[in-house]
Design a protein around this nucleic acid. Structure first.
Lengths: 134, 134
DNA sequence: CGAGTCTATATGAAACTTACATATGTTCTT
DNA sequence: AAGAACATATGTAAGTTTCATATAGACTCG
């Protein structure tokens, strides 16, 4: 008869002063971010890990998931990987974007642009009737 | 020894012609959308269900989750509800935005605007180095 | 008035995503 | 030689979205 413990959202939480802190993110944004970095040049996972936070505007990126996403991308043929020894430091697995990956990135960019435009519409419409909000 | 069956993403899939179809969405976007509709006037769930698709630009909204989100919002004090009989049709539960809900909506709008700006930066930067992409 | 449709609110469970914890081995620094 | 940094992973919990199904009153049409 105990109250069913509710799942807490990770996107909205109450600050100590009682106000709301909200974080809005795009689903699976890590994928286009990785494809974009790889579109510049082949890169290994650990370096991607270091360059992602700035691109994402987040403090840190989950290491485990990064490598999982990379292998998923490879399974789908968007990237290929190669072990690279002989360089300073431990052996690295270097990922290279394929043509298919380039197409997927282009598709992502279109979708993200559409999302941005949708957001703009949503925000404008809300402002417009926004005597309710402010 | 069977290959571990991979989780298929719902955001990227291959079309029959081989090209990629990508769908970009904001995490938990249903919540700000509901708050926004409720900021106009008190509304019951079923009507929200009908008005959401246009606002979201999606074909349909999951009925079950709609009601779950509404009750979560109520648990968090962002809305209050009241059963309303005497109207045509089955008894409806009408939700009304609270002051706290209005604040949460405002926080959402800020976060969404920030996300939009971040997307713009991401897209511009990618275009810029975009000899890689096109 | 009976059958079927529409309105209205909900629960259960599977599939997917994100977050947190930990493992393993190499290389570099001091 | 010890410890930090580099590099790549796996396991699992928590949270989110999707798909399926349940329930019941009200309306509509023959």
């Amino acid at each position: 008869m105990h109250r069913r413990s509710r799942w807490r959202s990770r996107n909205r939480r109450r600050r100590e002063d009682g106000s709301w802190a909200v974080r809005a993110r795009v689903e699976r944004f890590g994928e286009p971010a990785l494809l974009r970095l790889l579109s510049e040049r082949p890169t290994h996972g650990y370096e991607l890990l270091e360059r992602l936070p700035e691109l994402l505007g987040e403090e840190r990126v989950d290491v485990g998931n990064l490598y999982r996403v990379l292998r998923a991308l490879e399974e789908d043929g968007l990237v290929v990987s190669e072990w690279q020894a002989g360089l300073p430091g431990p052996t690295k697995r270097t990922y290279t974007l394929t043509d298919d990956g380039r197409e997927a990135l282009a598709a992502w960019l279109e979708a993200l642009a559409a999302l941005r435009d949708g957001l703009t519409t949503f925000l404008d419409d809300t402002e417009k009737g926004g005597d309710h909000v402010r």
